[in-house]
């Protein structure tokens, strides 16, 4: 695929502040900008899981928030809930629960999921009500905008925006091409 615009490059590098799955030494890092209420992100969730199973230690996965709150009224709170869970070391557990229950993202649902994950409920409710993690979510969103994220889900493969479809086969091929390219440069 032609790499055209300077806008198609990830402008915010992956750091320790990110939510990361997979080894730092993996040849490919896949960054997703996603929205927990977006049905396409729900589809992509299963694709990413399958890619991680297929590629093992060759893939590092990063999730960043990109809630479009005017079309997805529950997306902002869901993102903050994931961060609140992350503050107790359970970001990915909450991330999975949210994507598996996209039709039940009311605040009462979020609290229920927190309880099921064994989170400190009082702390979770206080953080959600106080929007403690709103700034983090907004920072993810704005960083995405500056990287040319224009909707969800948007993927970056080693920092290049993936503009094709995000089905398993297409993403796998794009990632394997990048693995080969990285191997060639080493």
């Amino acid at each position: 695929m032609p790499r055209q615009a300077p806008t198609a490059r990830l402008t915010v590098p992956v750091t320790a502040a990110d939510h990361v799955l997979g080894p730092p030494a993996a040849p490919v890092t896949l960054v997703e900008y996603g929205d927990f209420e977006c049905p396409f992100c729900g589809q992509a969730h299963g694709v990413v899981r399958a890619l991680r199973e297929q590629l093992g230690r060759q893939l590092r996965f990063v999730f960043r928030h990109f809630p479009l709150t005017t079309v997805h009224p529950h997306a902002q709170h869901a993102a903050e809930a994931a961060e609140a869970a992350g503050a107790e070391g359970k970001f990915w557990e909450m991330h999975d629960v949210l994507f598996e229950h996209q039709d039940a993202l009311e605040d009462s649902d979020l609290v229920r999921y927190a309880a099921a994950l064994g989170l400190d409920q009082t702390r979770f409710i206080l953080e959600l009500a106080g929007h403690v993690h709103a700034a983090r979510v907004r920072a993810d969103f704005l960083g995405g905008v500056r990287s040319g994220v224009n909707g969800t889900p948007t993927f970056f493969i080693n920092g290049w925006r993936h503009d094709g479809p995000f089905d398993f086969d297409t993403l796998l091929e794009a990632i394997e091409d990048e693995i080969a390219a990285v191997a060639g440069r080493r």
Partner: peptide
Amino acid sequence: CGDQLALYNELLPE
């Protein structure tokens, strides 16, 4: 268009 305008709506504070 919907996605595009929804994005700009989100960015009004910026």
